[in-house]
Nucleic acid binder design. Sequence first.
DNA 1: TCTAGATTGTCAGTATACTGTCAATCTCAA
DNA 2: TTGAGATTGACAGTATACTGACAATCTAGA
Lengths: 170, 170
Amino acid sequence: MPSKPQPPVTMDAVYAAPGYLFRRMQQIAVSIFMEECKEFDLTPVQYAALVAIHTHPGIDATRLSAVIAFDRSTLGSVIERLQAKQYVERKPSPEDKRIKLLHLTKSGAALLKEIIPAVERAQARMLEPLKPADRKSLMALLVQLVDLNNEASRVPLRAEDALEHLGKAG
Amino acid sequence: MPSKPQPPVTMDAVYAAPGYLFRRMQQIAVSIFMEECKEFDLTPVQYAALVAIHTHPGIDATRLSAVIAFDRSTLGSVIERLQAKQYVERKPSPEDKRIKLLHLTKSGAALLKEIIPAVERAQARMLEPLKPADRKSLMALLVQLVDLNNEASRVPLRAEDALEHLGKAG
DNA sequence: TCTAGATTGTCAGTATACTGTCAATCTCAA
DNA sequence: TTGAGATTGACAGTATACTGACAATCTAGA
């Protein structure tokens, strides 16, 4: 067991790297979400999209991508799948022929209501191993970090902007 | 501004959900990594794989997946790409015809040395917006949470086990 | 020894993610 | 009004991720 200063490249350095930990935690989070929600056949991304469409009926795909900070290209196929499952409808906009407006179907709205307890169980389980005070600290730090790093991601969150163009905020 | 208790489904609930924050942070982390390392044409996953192969020369793909906690199926294509870039070699094991042993090439080892400063810049940038004390708190909580949730992921980290079978820890 | 069960690498299928490109469409300024 | 530039949705290409299946191979027990 050599005890001299670590050579420049070690697994310990990887295990302690923020990027590695964020990746691991994301994988764990998805795994827990899928487990709790397996009876609903809905992914975390699809859930977020459903909530956003529910909150902003008539939103278009580009603005939806800004509201949930997901890539626009990716979102296209997400919406397709939600459409295939009959949770979402797309109607051409009468005002702008490029745009397709998104609405929840009855079935989509019903699903959203039903799935909430499972989603909340999943979110709770992700933090469960920590002490309650630590959960709060972690979430506070993470909210801060994600917010301050917003511009570093390709698709920054633009919730406000997106809302304004829908005529809901002003 | 309504101040009554939030209706059951809101974007605010999504924005504050651990799963959503972990996803956003992971996307930001990848984005920063790719930006700092763009001259090397290496992804975060490929980097972790290179480090693990460097640390455990002669490891096979299944054990590699345990050492970095990545899915075995996914790892196959990651290794293929590293092989195509001439950073990694695969040789059949003389003892077990199912197994292919992994080694860094000279070019792979050289790349690993060169890329370290960029990787460290990336890791630092991810946490930069936080105060130094907060960075430490966040990392400490995250290390804890990932460790305690280890079994919740499909591919739990099994660094020790994997090492033993390579005859490096006995 | 012979076979049931485990392991390894691979593959097919699905679902994010991101980059870059494109045609259709819209906007706005000259 | 017309044309440059922006926007929208779609697509191709690459790279994780995970599930489930499979043949080849290895291991152990009967």
